Simulated scan of single mutants.
Amino acid sequence: MISVFGSANMDLVAYTTIAPRRGETVTGRAFSTIPGGKGANQAIAAARAGAEVAFVGAVGDDAFGPVMRGTLESAGVDVSRLRVVPGSSGIAHIVVDDDGGNSIIVVPGANGAVTGVSTEDLAVIARSDALLLQLELPMEAVVAAARQAKVPVVLTPAPAQELPRELLAAVDLIVPNEIEAAAITGLAGPEEALMALLELVPEAVITLGGEGALYGSRTGERLRVPAVPVKAVDTTAAGDTFVGALAVARAEGRPHEEALRFATTAAALSVQRAGASTSMPTRHEIDASLR
């Protein structure tokens, strides 16, 4: 089982030819409301990739809350630890251009009310093969979950920010993208950033978009796995799809290279579809693409 302690947001997605610059107004061609949030995205990705998944987090008592709960449940995710708190759910305002690139503004809403991890939450986490964490919940809650988890901890360090020592000390695998890796280490080159990350945590994967992924461990193992060449429609949640699928492959005991290929294939399938939770492939689709 995979447990996810993280955010649930409603994504408000505007599609446009070119994203607006500061002070500029452009005309969009479509708009969608799609359940997302890095935590919920990773939970759905892992469930569709074949794992039993439990989600720990919060939604508001607004109209978005039941929709997000229903989306997680429909994917097969256990939502018994999904709390409802007064006020608005988290939202993400997303602009997607014709090249599939995106810019995102996240408003935490109910996610900001998750300031710790309960005994009941920890009981769920303790039954899992891995705990997936991101940084869209308050940092004190993320640190508490990482430190008290009795299972391997996988951290997606997004949105990029300073990482407390006590968090890094509890992380087994960190999975930043190239920009996040540079922000954490101060090093622009992914190979150099990887080496610096391994001074902080035992294992690291840097996702490189269309260039694939770079893996390293303190044991000295290094791998570079190419991306599957596809035409991107929308890259929203591609990283979350990668992490969810990677967690599943690792929990199944797959060798590192095979696990990375499984994850890059899942991400490649996701970018060919619009949206976050709506874009994530099933286990059958991933396996079919790997044949």
Rank of each mutant, 00 (worst) to 15 (best):
P176W: 01
Q161Y: 10
P152I: 01
V154G: 04
R127V: 13
L167A: 06
E162S: 14
T185C: 09
E180R: 05
L168F: 04
P164S: 03
I125P: 10
S128P: 12
P157G: 01
V153I: 01
D129P: 12
L173P: 02
N177S: 08
P159R: 11
G189I: 07
M139S: 04
E162H: 15
D129F: 14
E166I: 11
Q148W: 12
A149M: 03
R165Y: 10
L133Y: 00
A149K: 01
E192L: 14
P159H: 09
V171Q: 09
A181N: 11
P152Q: 02
A182G: 08
L133M: 02
A145G: 00
L132G: 04
Q161C: 09
A183S: 14
L137M: 08
I125A: 04
P138Y: 10
R165G: 15
A183D: 13
I184Q: 04
L187M: 13
L131G: 01
A141K: 00
L132N: 02
V151F: 06
V142P: 04
G186N: 06
E136Q: 06
L163I: 01
E166Y: 05
A146K: 07
V142K: 05
D172A: 02
E178K: 14
A149F: 05
L135F: 10
I125T: 02
V171E: 07
A149T: 03
P152T: 00
E178A: 15
I179R: 13
A181M: 12
A181Y: 11
L137P: 00
T156P: 09
L168Y: 05
A183I: 13
E136G: 04
A149R: 00
T156F: 09
V171D: 09
P190W: 03
P176I: 03
A181W: 09
L187T: 07
T185K: 08
V154L: 12
L133V: 05
M139L: 13
G189V: 08
D129C: 15
R127F: 08
E166Q: 11
A158G: 05
P152C: 01
E191M: 12
G189E: 15
R147S: 11
P157W: 07
G186W: 13
P152F: 02
V143I: 05
I174H: 07
L135D: 04
A188E: 12
A183H: 14
V154P: 10
R127I: 14
V175W: 00
V153D: 03
G189W: 14
R165V: 13
L132D: 02
L187E: 11
M139T: 05
K150L: 12
Q161R: 15
